[in-house]
Design a protein around this nucleic acid. Structure first.
Length: 604
RNA sequence: GUCCCAAUAGCUCAGUUGGAUAGAGCGUUUGCUUGCGGAGCAAAAGGCCGGGAGUUCGAAUCUCUCUUGGGACACCA
């Protein structure tokens, strides 16, 4: 990498300057070479400013000395400005890089940071109790893009969806399916309390009624609910997979939560922790306690959201005089943690029989999270195992990380990213979605109005840390004005040029070297060469929105080049150089679109 | 109460290891076409980077604090 060897040259120059006493023999901090922020500058270092204090010399003078001691190099020029040492890559170096892209197009954009390592991205992973909602759209698009990214970094990559098919919600779902199934066959069955009211459940149940007939009405009800529940999950997953396929998302595996219990992995993980003394009993329930300390009182108590908010406002106190006192009491219950010290993580893994009679439903989600993390990292060797979670799981992050530590998994092997939920707007009003109450909006509902590429672009275009509004009334408009088309347009334009070169036999000398001359050519090449750095940035931060910014900037750099540097009617050598540059731009546009999971149209 | 996230141009948002004149899209105003695809290019206007303090040669970025908005904190799923 050019960056590494410029850094090495810098260190050498500094050492030489110190040897000849032009710079005092002070300790040199690690040299950081940043991307240039000024036009025409590829890299810059502020080392001279950092040395100003210890050397008692003005930064500009130090920078000047450094430049003097840098050996001549055909690949770059160095210049001291404002105390910075700026490096500009030479036209010959930039041209050679373009040739390199064209020589091995399939390698372009790949990096080596993950070579020889296995990684997993687990995303999607919603309860299999309904079709894929818009909300999960952000999850799968972000997850899929991160998976593409780690793959580009050289990881052997595995894409997984975790099916929460254990626990009591599955029974409620089964009962809902059963009721709808019976209704479809003309027999009235009431929906269970807190049942799933959505049309999707009706649809899946009717299909089952059609394909299976009335056999489940004849068998004992418990059995029918259980079996129909499993069939219902399968039906929902089939539908979800079809939606994912529309979004160009594929998985290597759908992992069953239930299987963790059937294979004994759940019990094994708990036993491992028990042997370490981290499983503690409290009020008949089993808890994981990070440091084995007894369970703090107050936690086991059922609380409502009002209990947490100290702001029992003045009005509220007037209406409910008891509220204020209640708060005081509850605050007492919560044992104060030592100041400046986080309390140890303590979380229920197995509910008490007194509270949940059914033994199959006593394990909590967290109880599955432990063996699942173990399975990913220790059994299957994924490092990192990336989890993509919605913000409703933010409290689980510390727990799972604590569990991973307790299980002895290597630091950093479990990486969890939390994305903020999107807000849905209809008629300017926020739409609250819920699968249970049956007003969810499915991804399939909007893909007709908004193309897959535009949908993915919207889901990717903002940092996962920010929530954003998805206006259901403006879908068409959001699609039409979507920046993805600008990016794709650049790609299609280049394809068009290449077609015409062929078909109309323009005089183009493709063996002429890439000669970078014009401002827009320099800018375009520099932008192209950023691709591997962007890939590494996305992989490191697990923030895929950087692609959308980069893709637009790249397309813009191409447009300016297109405007300034004509290929048609240029001398054959110039035309050849420019056509090669355009082709490298096409490959780079295609690569970044592919990373984002979008199509690369040759005509629009 | 504790924790997480956000606050940057009229609107929607970028701003990776602290660095040079804080950027883009949309919107507004104005130019560019007998040019390889005008879904384009060029330009203008528009900013106490929520407030305050601190660290630093240097802060939108780091620390503390306050304000505002969203979310999480169950033997729910």
């Amino acid at each position: 990498m050019i960056r590494d060897y410029i850094t090495a040259d810098l260190a050498q120059a500094l050492a030489n300057a110190q040897r000849s006493s032009e710079i005092p023999a002070v300790e040199i901090p690690p040299i950081q070479l940043a991307r240039g922020r000024v036009q025409g500058v590829d890299y810059a270092t502020s080392i001279a400013m950092q040395l100003a204090r210890t050397t008692r010399m003005p930064p500009a003078k130090i920078a000047g000395i450094i430049v003097k001691y840098l050996a001549e190099n055909p690949d770059y020029t160095a210049e001291a400005i404002n105390g910075y040492v700026n490096f500009s890559l030479s036209a010959s170096y930039l041209g050679a890089q373009v040739e390199k892209i064209l020589a091995e197009p399939s390698e372009w954009g790949k990096t080596k940071s993950g070579l020889g390592k296995k990684a997993q991205v687990e995303h999607g992973s919603a309860n299999p109790t309904g079709y894929a909602t818009i909300g999960s759209g952000r999850n799968v698009v972000v997850g899929d893009t991160l998976a593409n990214t780690l793959e580009a970094c050289g990881y052997e990559l595995h894409r997984e969806w975790y099916i929460n098919d254990a626990g009591s919600q599955v029974r409620v779902f089964g009962a809902s399916i059963f009721a709808r199934y019976a209704q479809a066959l003309g027999r009235y069955e009431p929906m269970p309390e807190k049942g799933y009211q959505g049309d999707d459940v009706i649809e899946v149940a009717s299909e089952l009624a059609k394909s299976k007939g009335d056999v489940y009405l004849a068998m004992p009800r418990e059995q029918a609910v259980r079996e129909l529940g499993l069939l219902g999950i399968a039906g929902v997953m089939t539908h979800i997979k079809a939606t994912l396929a529309r979004l160009n998302i594929r998985y290597d595996n759908f992992f069953s939560e239930k299987s963790l219990y059937e294979t004994g992995q759940a019990a094994a993980a708990v036993e491992l922790l028990r042997a370490k003394g981290l499983i503690v009993e409290h009020d008949g329930a089993q808890w994981f306690s990070e440091d084995g300390s007894p369970i703090r009182s107050g936690q086991a108590r059922k609380r409502t959201s009002e209990d947490y908010s100290a702001a029992a406002s003045a009005e509220q106190r007037l209406i409910e005089p008891g509220a204020a006192e209640g708060l005081v009491e509850r605050d007492d219950l919560q044992e104060p943690a030592e100041k400046g010290k986080k309390p140890p993580i303590q979380v229920v893994i197995m509910r008490s029989a007194a509270v949940i009679p059914n033994p199959e439903e006593r394990a909590t989600y967290f109880c599955s999270d432990l063996p699942y993390a173990w399975n990913k990292v220790q059994v299957r060797g994924f490092n990192p195992a990336v989890y993509v979670w919605g913000e409703d799981h933010q409290a689980d992050v510390d727990r799972v990380l604590a569990g991973a530590r307790a299980l002895g998994l290597p630091d950093g092997a479990v990486r969890i990213i939390i994305y903020r939920f999107i807000t849905l707007l209809r008629g300017g009003q926020e739409v609250r979605m819920g699968k249970r109450i049956g007003n969810a909006i499915w991804i399939d509902d909007v893909l007709g109005d908004i193309g897959v590429d535009a949908f993915r672009y919207i889901m990717l275009s903002r940092s996962v840390d920010t929530k954003f509004a998805f206006d259901l009334d403006l879908l068409k408009e959001q699609s039409d004005t979507n920046p993805v088309y600008y990016v794709q347009y650049g790609h299609a334009r280049i394809c068009s040029i290449e077609r015409r070169v062929q078909e109309e036999a323009w005089p183009v000398n493709m063996s002429a070297p890439v000669a970078v001359r014009m401002t827009s050519e320099f800018a375009l090449v520099r932008k192209l060469l950023e691709l591997p750095e962007i890939v590494e940035t996305v992989a490191g931060l697990l923030q895929p929105h950087h692609y959308t910014t980069y893709a637009r900037e790249l397309a813009q750099a191409f447009s300016k080049f297109y405007d300034e540097c004509r290929i048609k009617d240029s001398p054959p050598d110039v035309a050849g150089s420019r056509l090669k540059l355009a082709r490298a731009a096409r490959l780079t546009l295609a690569k970044v679109l592919a990373l984002m999971g979008m199509s690369t149209p040759e005509r629009m």
